[in-house]
Structure formats: C-alpha cells, structure tokens
Design a protein around this nucleic acid. Sequence first.
DNA 1: GTGCATATTTACACTCTGTGCAAGTTTGTG
DNA 2: CACAAACTTGCACAGAGTGTAAATATGCAC
Lengths: 244, 244
Amino acid sequence: MPTTQTVPAQASGDNAVPPAPSRRELNKAATRQAITDAALHLLRSKGPGNFTVEDIAEAAAISRRTFFNYFSSTEAALAAVTHGFLDHALAQFRLRPAGEPILESARAALIQLADPMTVAPMAELYSLAQSNPQLNRSELEAWDHCTAEIIDAARERFARTPGAEFDELYLRALAGSLISCGKAAMDVWFARCGGSLTPESLSILRQLLIDAVGLLGSGFARPETPQASTTANNSTATPFADRL
Amino acid sequence: MPTTQTVPAQASGDNAVPPAPSRRELNKAATRQAITDAALHLLRSKGPGNFTVEDIAEAAAISRRTFFNYFSSTEAALAAVTHGFLDHALAQFRLRPAGEPILESARAALIQLADPMTVAPMAELYSLAQSNPQLNRSELEAWDHCTAEIIDAARERFARTPGAEFDELYLRALAGSLISCGKAAMDVWFARCGGSLTPESLSILRQLLIDAVGLLGSGFARPETPQASTTANNSTATPFADRL
DNA sequence: GTGCATATTTACACTCTGTGCAAGTTTGTG
DNA sequence: CACAAACTTGCACAGAGTGTAAATATGCAC
C-alpha cells in the first residue's frame, strides 16, 4: 500500500534522536495501521463475520498474502486495537515507583485508561466482541497476554526491591486478579453505560476501576450495605479504601 | 460410529430411574466420547497441530461431516476435557450451603478438584496447551465460560439469601479473581511438579489452591516473610487464613 | 547515481476448515 | 409395520492459512 511517495516523516524539526525510524519501518507501520483501520471499518459497516480477509486486503490496498504477513487472522488484526490499549496500561504500570504497593500502582495505571482517546477504540471493539465468539476469543487472548506481561513487570520490580522476597503464586494470583477486576469493571461499565464516552460515563468507569481494585485490596469483604456504590462520581472516595 | 449393536446399557440392576437415557442419547454420548478420545490420542501421538479433523474422524470411525455436527473445531473437541473439569468444579460450588461466604465455598470446591481422576485429563491438556497457541485460546475460552457460570451461580445464591444486597461489580470481580487464582495455582503447580499425579504432587496442588484463595481473602497483604509458603504439604495450615 | 544485498510484496498453488444441502439411515411411537 | 423425527453421510463450495519463487522496494557502499 505504501507506494514510493514522500514519507510523512516527522513533521519538521522534531526530536529524531532515538531510533531514527527508517522508511522500511515507517512503511510497515503504515501498512499495519491501514490494515487495522480497514478491518475496523469493515467491522462497523458489515458486522462481525460478514467480511473476508480478501475484503480487508482490498480496502487496505494490499494483497491477501501480505495481510497474512502482518496478521494471522482477521481477529488478530482487530485484536491489535485491544493490544494497544493494554500496552498503554502496562506502560503506565511500569512508570510507577518500584517501592509502591502493587495494588496502588495498578489503581493508578487503571484510572489513566479512563480517558476518551484511550478508551474509545477499545470500547467499540469490546462491545462488538460481546456478540461474536470469534472476536471474543481474541480479546481473551489479549487480556491473557497482558496478564503475562504484568507478571513480568511485577517480578522485575520485586527483583529490584532489595527487601522483598517474592512468591510466584502471589505474583500470578495477583496479576490475574487485577486483570479480572479490570475486566469486571469494563463489563459493568458497558452494561450500565453502553460504552458511552461522555465525561459522566468515563467518570463512572474510573470509579468502577477504583472500586474493583478496592474490592481486591479489601479481600472482598462482604459489603454490608453496598447499595451506595458507584452511582455518583464523587472523585476518589472509595469504600474499602483502607489499604491499597 | 455406534452401529446397531447391543447398547452397553447400565451394567445391570442399577438406578435407572431419573431420565432413562434413550438409545439416541447413549449413541450421541458415545460418539462424543469417541471423538474426544480420538482427538486426545492423536494429540499425544502426533503433537498439536500435526493432525486434521479428517484424522480424528477416521480414528473415531465417523465422517468428517459428523465431526462438525459435534464440535466446531479440533480445539473445541479437546476443550471438552477442560469443560468437563470446570463443570465438575462448578457443580461442587453449587452444592455448598447458600449462607456460606463465597470464598469459603470456592475454597471447598477447589480442593475437591485435586484428585487424580478429576485432574488427570486436565493436567495433560493444560501442559500441552502451554506450547500451542490454538489450544491455549480454547482453554482461555473454557475458563471464561466457567467464570460466567460462577457469576450466575453466585448471583442466584445472593438472590436466595434474604439479607444480602448484591453488587454486580462485586460479583464479577470476585468470580474473575477466583478463576484467576485457580489458574495461578495450576500454573505454579505445573512449573513445580510438571503435572505429576503422585499423592505428594496433588497435595501440593491442593495447598496451592488453598493458598491462592487465601491470598484473595486477605486482599493480597504483602507477604513479609513468604519464603515458608507451599513447599510442605502440612494439611490445611495456610498463611493469611484470617478471614476466608 | 549505480550496483548490489537485503527486506518486502505479490501471484499462484495447495491443503485444510467450516457450512449448506439433499439423500440415506437409525430410532421413537402409534 | 408405517411413519415422523433425529442423525449421519457425501458432495460441493467459499474461505483460511501457508510454502515458494518471482518481482519490487529499500538500505548502503562506492
């Protein structure tokens, strides 16, 4: 698809210091993007399962074979969106100071996600995946992949924190539970707001994410009077905020 | 595959009261079993990805088309094993008294699983899935399906317990975290024991499952001295056993 | 710029998957 | 037995995914 044309390059006098992306890499990135864009458009217009790899290739102006050089399936192409979202979350996590409790780092990373630009593509895909088994499997895979990366990140952090011994079970159970709580929050958000991107809706998502991590931190203490949970967007006051 | 032959029936003078399985149902169950058996054998002998649906059909003495009447893919046929395992767990969960705390019910249900007959097929599949993306996706789907069923079971339980209000977020986050902890325990068990089915190995699995749920119940309190975790099979003495 | 090594795209051929359909076969029932 | 419903099977077909080799684009040295 990228025929020989002037490369978009980096705007103008930008910071071109780090890896200096070659034309090859730019082309590849552009093609990759063209594919996922085309796939997403087709998903929207024709609905899940009603278009083929050939359709995507045609829309992205590449050959069918080239599509398979980038992605192993339609679902994989679409899952790239989710991967992007989760990679973003992971990057946020890694930015947190090493001494911080993991649950607090996770909470901080998660609330960064409830922002329109980040959550929008994810939201759309997530809702479409609800009704499509094929798509849903890829989503699950993406979340699983993210879990594995959190485990790595957390293990690395433990390795760098002098005092802390670490337990593989602890690590894996915590990482998996965190992801599950993130998913639970998204699920409830969708059920409640239908993936709307209004400020109020995003505020609810943020609160749900915080609450979910809070539940985790409190060991899922039985909510005695849980009817006052997440209906209001009253900033950061969470139940179970004792230790996280 | 079940040609007209004397049905195995139910041994002899057994309890044939409940639904009186018809010949049709018996045949279907037998075919289904024949398929999963054949698939499992091929998986063992040829390795993942090195056999086709046609191979399975031939081994099960049915047509390719009939295979697809039972399962939508090779992976689905193999995932039936995992589904059986998880259904077993779920049945255990549903048997627990409604008043019991959910974490305690989960703990009780999970330790029932660490029994040779139950865990053996699962163990084999689980280890094979580690190295096979296709298979792993089906496994993820099976766990996800189980999560959904736990949510249903827990919701039902809440509905029947008069005093308890329930929170959708609480439910989903808890169910997801429970499954994640189960997976984490299995992961660690495999890493440590390689899926061995000796009594010691199973004892370790049991302890890992208990510990994982314990971690969940304690809100993943930072283990200050976690080096004495699950190396011994000292019955049910767990760290973090304060409230579960 | 020319030329060459390397990376990427593409066409083509091929196997395997998954599904609709219509004709056969088996099972349940009067 | 006869008939209906359920189940199996063969066939045909669209689409997925992969190996291969030829064509094209890019990077780099000169």
